[in-house]
Design a protein around this nucleic acid. Sequence first.
DNA 1: CTTATTTGCACAATCGATGGTGCAAAGACT
DNA 2: AGTCTTTGCACCATCGATTGTGCAAATAAG
Lengths: 357, 357
Amino acid sequence: MANSSKKKATIYDLSVLSGSSPSTVSAVLNGTWRKRRIKESTAELIRSLAETHQYTANRQARGLRSSRSGLVGLLLPVHDNRYFSSLAQTFEAHVRSKGQCPIVVSASRDPEEERKTAETLISYSIDELFICGATDPDGVHEVCEAAGLKHINIDLPGTKVPSVISDNYEGGRLLTEAIIRRFPAHRPLRPDDLYLFGGRNDHASRERIRGFRAVKKELLGDDPDECIQPTGYAANNARRAFESFFARHGRLPRGLFVNSSINFEGLLRFMAEHPHDNFTDLVVGCYDYDPFASFLPFPVIMIRQDVERMIAKAFEVIEQPRPAAQIHLVQPQLVPPRTALTGPLDALKDIDLPRSH
Amino acid sequence: MANSSKKKATIYDLSVLSGSSPSTVSAVLNGTWRKRRIKESTAELIRSLAETHQYTANRQARGLRSSRSGLVGLLLPVHDNRYFSSLAQTFEAHVRSKGQCPIVVSASRDPEEERKTAETLISYSIDELFICGATDPDGVHEVCEAAGLKHINIDLPGTKVPSVISDNYEGGRLLTEAIIRRFPAHRPLRPDDLYLFGGRNDHASRERIRGFRAVKKELLGDDPDECIQPTGYAANNARRAFESFFARHGRLPRGLFVNSSINFEGLLRFMAEHPHDNFTDLVVGCYDYDPFASFLPFPVIMIRQDVERMIAKAFEVIEQPRPAAQIHLVQPQLVPPRTALTGPLDALKDIDLPRSH
DNA sequence: CTTATTTGCACAATCGATGGTGCAAAGACT
DNA sequence: AGTCTTTGCACCATCGATTGTGCAAATAAG
């Protein structure tokens, strides 16, 4: 360990060691040295010194000077959810491949926290911000705009900058139709047998509900209002809604459109309290994909949002000079019951092959 | 919008506006002003100016000067996994409550990438690093050590700094015993009917396997080597292992100890290819908890690692001046089939109550 | 009224890297 | 040999905040 004595080496240390000026060292190590006509041999010397002294640039200093940090932010509602965590996983890979550092933060679907979190990220001079599933995208926009920060919406659209979102109307239609068709012709679903639970007054929920109602009207002939129960995005709220329905009717609706896997967890909590034979004539459609949920002991039809394409599209759009504040729709995918799809983790190689025990 | 003209306000702008020096402005805004005997009225003036001009400190500049950034890092293997994402969720809440900024990054279980990622985080002058599930914790330690960065291991232990991990031996025992006892006395499990799949040569897997083998020996009287199949941490590797077993035996083992939910996904992929009646005499124990998996159509016994306690303990230990490089065990919890537990998301309030549609 | 103390703040160096500018030495050309 | 280019690099201001130090003005003590 040459001089791994204490603190990190700086360009000034290398400057002394190499006999060159700090600016020369800097130029060599950040790649601008050809432009500055540094001799090849000088560069070589500095590079080798940097190597032996384990030099790595202080990015705060660099960021301060250049007002760019190399950080790219992703603002999520929550981490603990397969949809959002697969977004994070995919986002990370993209950012890493561009040589930048991903920084993923959640803001709990709280508009105030969303803005404050964006402020915090801005104070670190992040280069770009991907605003995902924000409750108030335009509020976050204000903050970004004031700081001159490039940003884009994902999953839930805003009105000021481009948004990349799922085609929730189409997804809602697909899922609703699949639920209905799952019931045999001799015991068809009645309109008041198909309920939607979960979601709130956000763009995604509204579109899904619109699709749900349209298909119900088309295929079942009616679409009663009480079948729409936008109970929010908390498992226990959904659970209470199921309990309440069950208390009133002594059973669940035969067909359930569950908006988001979080609310599906609410359904599980409900089920844990009731004997299984209550659920023998049940078809669940869930707007979100989870491999385990797909194999539950009743038919579960799921919608898988196309995370890869959404992220790819978002990066494509954000790189444009002045992109229009338009909505880019990405088609989601209908997943039949008992389907195990691959995900972002399958792109990773499993490194350390197991040794024999 | 007073002067939200273009760029962010700095202490120099406020200095001019207030007629005070930049150092005074700085002191007022970072809270050290009493120590510097700034007049209350001066402070008040500056604070109000900061307010109207939406001043927020440039943290890169602050970090450069003070060599602290307010960033606290969490290095994960992957995001897209309920266990790790719930760790991230819990970690975030802790860091936020201390007024710092969490930064969560994944390194794909690749030792090289783990070190490089740590280097990157260090170059942003993060204040602390939580190393979670690292394949080579001691390698990351070297990097942190050289930079004088406080760090701690979670989930997988290192030898140089403290580690907070699950009691995997005990967890392995609990889970194995629960699987065995699940079989009725008149059709008991034979030793070669209980297999372990997944994991590699890491500390957690070794301990779980040790617990598994000990209990098998105790309860079933034998413990054949071929029942241990540490197929790594990739769903498709596990799937292939199940396929291969199935090809040889025409069925699966009656009892399965599946190491990690990722490998459980491999089991699902296998199941998707085979008719369901192959799995009527199957009990699965999975070392990881997932609410949906808990409700699958065969008995699934799960281990829930105590994420909250692990994170809390890790913060407690890392705050000690010179903590011993010891292992802190946290007891995991056995989760019987069909159990819907609450998680970190339940701590969040669901903000925007749904309006009537 | 003088000296000692306290109050209130300004000054300037500093953190580490970047990039514009300037200038000596080496080489090319007449 | 004298002038013109080109090469190779050093110098210095700068990014925005922090912090040790110094020093007037206001106040207190004698």
